[in-house]
Design a protein around this nucleic acid. Sequence first.
RNA 1: UGGGGUGUCGUCAAGCGGUAAGACACAGGUCUUUGGAACCUGGACUCGGAGGUUCGAAUCCUCCCACCCCAGCCA
Length: 564
Amino acid sequence: MAQAHFSSSSDFVREIIEEHMKTNRFQGRVATRFPPEPNGYLHIGHAKSVCLNFGIAAQYGGTCNLRMDDTDPSGESLEYVESIINDVRWLGFDWEDRLFYASDYFEQLYQCAVRLIKNGNAYVCSLSADEIRERRGTLTEPGKESPYRNRSNEENLHLFERMRAGEFEDGTHVLRAKIDMASPNITMRDPVLYRIKRATHYRTGGQWRIYPMYDFAHCLSDSIEKITHSICTLEFENNRPLYDWILDQLKLDSHPRQIEFARLNLSYTVLSKRRLIELVGKGSVTGWDDPRMPTIAGMRRRGYTPDAIRNFCDRIGVAKNDSLIDMALLEHCVREDLNERAPRVLGVLRPLRLVIDNYPEDQVEEFECFNHPQNSAMGSRKVPFSRVLYIEQDDFQENPQRKFNRLGPGREVRLRYSYIIKYASMVKDEQTGEITEVHCTYDPETRNAPPPDGRKVEGVIHWVSAEHSISAEARLYDRLFQVANPLGEEGDFTKYLNPKSLERIDSCRLEPSLKGAAPGSRYQFERLGYFCVDPIDSSPGGLVLNRIVTLRDSWTKVASRENK
RNA sequence: UGGGGUGUCGUCAAGCGGUAAGACACAGGUCUUUGGAACCUGGACUCGGAGGUUCGAAUCCUCCCACCCCAGCCA
């Protein structure tokens, strides 16, 4: 196993494994698997499972297989398979030659079903879906046995063969396990093992007319692959007795231990494949890879790093509590990683013209700027400076509010890496009253150095040279939903979509070094946040930057408090 | 109402009978040519509740309460 992302802390799953190692239950072997159904894109919740399964395998010197759990032809496709492969690999995991498909086991699975029938453990039921439901009983009442429950083994076998041969229409017959219609666990009330679906499977085509159900296919796939620990989410806890029952009836040597953990929930988004499909289908987002989506593809496009996501998965822990993780933790992990690796640059999102009255008209200076304030190994670059600059609109207030440490009438500020400037005057649009230009004077003695007289200025602001800067579009993303738990609120969850989750600004000005920035490359725009060159919409002629995450910003906190 | 789970700081989460880790968030502070980063400090007199066992309980026992999952020919 190439990767070595060991979890720093232990958890109950690892404790169980430790115990198995001690008692030699699996001869010291650890084999896990990540078994997605290829009917949608992977999201951050899947990443938790990927990290758990691959992480455990690596930690115990075992293996982790990637397995497509493709037992239901409707909705599954090659596109999804490819996206899953791509995403797991991008996250940094390697399954070597162990990419498997449940659909490759269809013949073996069929033979297992035949054995079950021969042993009198399964029967063909010819009730309709509705009739089966009616007889299943309720939470408090036992179910009723199917009238077909006592067909002879021969008849069952014959019928099952004919099901496979495609002699029956969808829904006319199913294969059921013969267990206990009175079981308090509804899963054990003669569960359906096979159904007829005359649908084309993306891999097996028209080869099969019957398809195994999850409960039948999953435990057997695990057993075939000699998985030792079958890690899944909490909602399958009720299915564990059936998982064990099937393997026990078939007397299979390889009998994995199923362990269930709590799935991830993240605040201000939804992590349910069905809901995400809905968002994509309704056009609420631009696609699976919309940077606002909690999908791996979306996060990748947004600019999140695999390291940040893996670190996040490590920090949230593994337990059995239903939890709702604060999005702030994910953002923290992203900032933590990007703070270290992203080169700093200057860029202005909403430009305000600033003229330095006493700076020579045609003079251009170049300032040496560090690419990283704490890491000199990342080098430096030269940024041109001239008489006319752009600064951030937010960095000037005509009547500065309390604690506003930026530019305003009568004030002095430092232009990052260059001079201290002093306010002189402003120009307003006569119609709108909007400030269109600010005039200042500069102090030549403060050229990228402290003022000789030691005076303090209001603060430091960023800038670009008007003439030398390049234009770009910025896409500022915010949380997808307005409420922490959209699925926990009244009514349709899409009601709570955040209408301001995307703001496009097409008039940004950036320092010229960004010209030709590679798609996917990430930068910190000083004082603003981390941005990623959009891998799809950006072009050499039209830079498009996705805001990955803002910098931690103590000013907006102060400002909102001051405004109360 | 049957069965299966879970309840420890705002959010996660350690703890496994010896007197409540850590992280994020939050609040103060130091430093700073990013209101960034870094660094320091603060916070659960208490572990869903009530009883009980014990010298000692978040940890063991009893009862109660709350929340989640299960009645797809989805996974």
